[in-house]
């Protein structure tokens, strides 16, 4: 499960840190890791006004996220843009946003996923639609004898 108290590690090909503006830009094969949560992207902008980490914005051909929920089920997500709010802790996905919780899939133009509660809010934006695809449960999972 996601642990918001762990340090956040970031790796990239190059970086430009601007101490005065509190903005750092990491570019090239960027990976952000906090415990089980891993976010990737081509470019990540870290906003830390007054030296307080506020958010990390990952943009990529597709930025990706993998983590685990409280029942240790894998959760995956992808979108053109991901805003990671460590304090949330939550991730806002925009642009071709998709989230997979186990075998269930959700699509929308904007999805906000809460990393601690493992809940998500999907919104359509102007023209899009929210889609939720729930994989049928196996009967054995429900404890029914066939």
């Amino acid at each position: 499960q996601h642990n918001p108290d762990l340090p956040i590690r970031i790796e990239a090909d190059r970086a430009n840190l601007d101490d005065q503006r509190g903005v750092s830009v990491y570019q090239g094969n960027v990976t952000i890791t906090q415990g089980d949560t891993v976010i990737t992207g081509d470019e990540v902008t870290v906003h830390a006004p007054d030296r307080q980490l506020e958010r990390m914005v990952s943009e990529g051909r597709l930025a990706t996220l993998t983590t685990r929920d409280e029942s240790n089920r894998e959760v995956r997500a992808e979108a053109r843009r991901m805003e990671f709010f460590p304090d949330g802790p939550r991730v806002a996905l925009t642009g071709e946003a998709r989230v997979w919780q186990g075998d269930d899939e959700f699509r929308g133009s904007r999805i906000v996923y809460n990393l601690e509660a493992a809940t998500l809010e999907a919104s359509t934006g102007d023209t899009g639609r929210v889609e939720a695809i729930f994989a049928p449960r196996d009967r054995s999972e429900d404890g029914d004898t066939p």
Binding site: P7, R9, A12, D13, N16, L17, D18, L53, P86
Partner: peptide, 18 residues
């Protein structure tokens, strides 16, 4: 002067949540 730091390759960073 501008307080900027550029790292050219193999970058690793760590942020401590407050």
């Amino acid at each position: 002067t501008r307080d900027t730091l550029e790292l050219e390759s193999q970058v690793r960073g760590t942020y401590v949540p407050h």
